[in-house]
């Protein structure tokens, strides 16, 4: 994750630490898909995934006064989510997965973990991925390059601007327009 991302999170965290609860709600929005996916690696049932994710966010909120910023917020949050999921499995007398998720790569799936999604979820996910990929493929070239460098290479806007030889503001606009196009396609399938 680029340094700029850490800076944005740090600003939001500082706002939460000053008592702005809605800043935490924005952090939840920013990371809830990733946390759901992460927890979903440990817990199969959708309702349980929601419960564990909720618990993880509440634990994070309560622990924020002690968060010193030594690590990135998302790393810290992912660690809490993983521990919450493991505790959940232990409390249910189930064995947690034998292989830990690498915190640094926690935002992406660890292929060494077993796939816990059921056939139905797999089908929905596959369909969604297909739609997203097709949407990206259909994008105008400059939007496609911008979103690809961002989402697949995790480049910062500054880096993308250098690669594409255009202003940072243009990169930002292109990524936004790419996301809008992807969103439109996703909404078509519900």
């Amino acid at each position: 994750m680029p340094e700029s991302a850490r800076e944005t999170d740090r600003q939001l965290v500082e706002r939460v630490q000053r008592g702005d609860k809605q800043a935490f709600e924005v952090l939840v929005l920013k990371y809830q898909h990733k946390i759901v996916s992460l927890v979903g690696r440990y817990v199969r049932d959708q309702d349980e995934v929601m419960d564990v994710t909720q618990e993880a966010f509440i634990k994070a909120y309560r622990a924020l006064p002690r968060f010193r910023g030594d690590s990135a917020f998302y790393t810290w949050l992912f660690r809490i989510a993983i521990n919450t999921a493991k505790n959940h499995l232990v409390s249910r007398s189930r064995r947690p997965p034998g292989v830990d998720v690498d915190i640094d790569d926690g935002e992406y799936y660890d292929p060494t973990l077993s796939d816990v999604a059921g056939p139905e979820e797999q089908m929905v996910s596959s369909q969604l991925e297909e739609v997203v990929y097709q949407a990206i493929a259909d994008l105008p070239e400059e939007l496609k390059v911008a979103i690809t460098l961002r989402e697949f290479e995790a480049m910062s806007y500054e880096e993308i601007a250098q690669v594409m030889e255009c202003p940072v503001g243009t990169v930002r606009s292109r990524i936004f327009r790419a996301r809008e196009a992807i969103e439109k396609r996703m909404n078509e399938i519900g």
Partner: peptide, 13 residues
């Protein structure tokens, strides 16, 4: 959805 595809697996959605 893009992140999921990067890991090569599907999860609870």
């Amino acid at each position: 959805a893009i992140g999921a595809s990067r890991g090569g697996t599907t999860s609870v959605a």
